[in-house]
Design a binder for these strands. Sequence first.
DNA 1: CGAAACTTTGATCTCTGTCAAGATTAGTGG
DNA 2: CCACTAATCTTGACAGAGATCAAAGTTTCG
Lengths: 232, 232
Amino acid sequence: MPCAFFPTLFRGKVANVSEFRKLQQLATPVYFRSGTTIFAEQTRTKVTFGLSRGVVRLYKPLADGRRRILTFALPGDFLGIPLAERHNFSADAVGDVALCRFSRHDLEGLVGSSSSVMQLMIDFAIRELGMAQDHLLLLGTGSAEERVAMFLISWRDRLARLNSVPEEIPLPMRRQDIADFLGLELETVCRTLTKLERKNAIRVGPTGVFLTGLGRDAAGFRSSSAATALTP
Amino acid sequence: MPCAFFPTLFRGKVANVSEFRKLQQLATPVYFRSGTTIFAEQTRTKVTFGLSRGVVRLYKPLADGRRRILTFALPGDFLGIPLAERHNFSADAVGDVALCRFSRHDLEGLVGSSSSVMQLMIDFAIRELGMAQDHLLLLGTGSAEERVAMFLISWRDRLARLNSVPEEIPLPMRRQDIADFLGLELETVCRTLTKLERKNAIRVGPTGVFLTGLGRDAAGFRSSSAATALTP
DNA sequence: CGAAACTTTGATCTCTGTCAAGATTAGTGG
DNA sequence: CCACTAATCTTGACAGAGATCAAAGTTTCG
C-alpha cells in the first residue's frame, strides 16, 4: 500500500465506508522531520493535511517573537478545518511526523458529492470549536496549577482515546510548548510540575509523567465536574 | 410579515436566495427579556436559535459560581453551531432580544438537501473557530490593558460590520460581563478603562465609550498587525 | 423617594513573570 | 567510547500586575 493513511481518522465514527475509501484515495503521504514547519499562517489552503503519525503543534506567532499554541494535533486530526480559505495558524512537527496531503479542490469535490463526508467535516469543526472553548475556560480562569493539571489529564485522555497509554504518559513536546499552550512561562511550568510532584499528584519521568494522583475526572473547576485532587 | 428574521444573517453572503427563503420559512420568532436564559449548557439541541435583534452572551458557568463568557452574539449570528448534538454553553439575553427558533430536525433536512445552506453552516463554524482562536491569543498573552483595548476595538468593528456605529460605541453588557469575557476581575476592567481614559485613548460615556485614540488597526501584539496606540 | 444593583476608587497581598545561574540531557566529532 | 558543546530543564531571588477585600459613589427601577 503506497499510502499510510491515518488509521484513527474520525475516531472510527465512519458512517459510509465506501465514501471513506474515496477520501483515502485522495490522500498523498508526506513526511516531515522534527521541528520543521508544515505550513505558515495566512497562506492559502491549496492543500490541507491529516495527521497519520506523530504530534503537530498548531500555533500563532506573535509580533514580539513569542507564540501561542492553539492545540496539539494527534493522529486522526486534520490540521485546521479542511475547507477554510486560509490557514489561520502555523503548524510544525513536534517529532518526526507522517501526514496525508489533500488538494483542497479534490476535497471540495468529494464533500460536495458526499453528504457523509460533509458530515465528517462538520463533526470535526464542532469538535475543534468545543476544544477551543474548553481551552478558553482554562486560560481565562485557571491558576498555573489548574492549567498544568488539566493539560496533563486531557492529554492523557486524548492519547487514551487513540491507544492504550503506558504508565508513563509521553510528553513529546518541550516545556516551552506546554507554556505557550497554557499561557504561562516555561519556568512556571517547571515549578508547577515539581509542585505537583511534591503533592504526589504526579511523578516526572525522563520522557513523560506518571499521573499517580490525578484522577480521571479531576477536571478541577470546570462546570460539569467537581473539584478534586487539586485542593491544597 | 409574521417573522422578523435576522436581517443581517451571514453578512449578506448568500449564494442562493431561494434556499435562503426556505431557511427563513423554518424560523419561528421568539423573544426574551433582558437577563433571561435562552438555553443552558449540556441540554440537547432540539431547537437552535439565530439572533435577530439585541445581544446574547454565550458562557460556561463554573463550579465556584463564576463563569467564562465565550463570546457575545450579535444579530445574524447563530447561538452555537446549529447542527451540534448538544449546547456546550449557556446563553442569556444581555438586553431584550428577538430570536429565530429552528427545529434541528427541520434544519438538518434542509441542510441535507441544500449544499448552499450546508456551506453557510460550515462558513459559520469556520468563522466561530477563528474568533475563538483569536480570543485564545488575547487570554493567553495580553495584559489587562491590551485585553480591554482589543475588546473595545473588535466590538466596535463587529458593530460597524452590521450598521454604521454612532460616535459613542454602545456597551450594553455589564462590566462584570466584560471581565468574564476577558478573564479579568471587574475591578480591573474599571481601573483599566479609567487608565485608558487618562491616556486619552478613550472616553467613557454613560451608555458606552468613545474611541478617541484607539486606531482601527491598533490590534496590539497580534501576529499580522503592528503594535500601536497601546505603547506607554 | 428609597432600595437594590452596578460602577468606581483605594489599600494590600499573592501569584506569576522576569532575570540569573546551575543541572541535566542531547548531539557531535575525535 | 569519551570529551565537549549546545540545548533544554530546574531552581532561586525579586518585582510587578492583577486579585482580593473594603468602601464610597452612581445609576436604575419599583
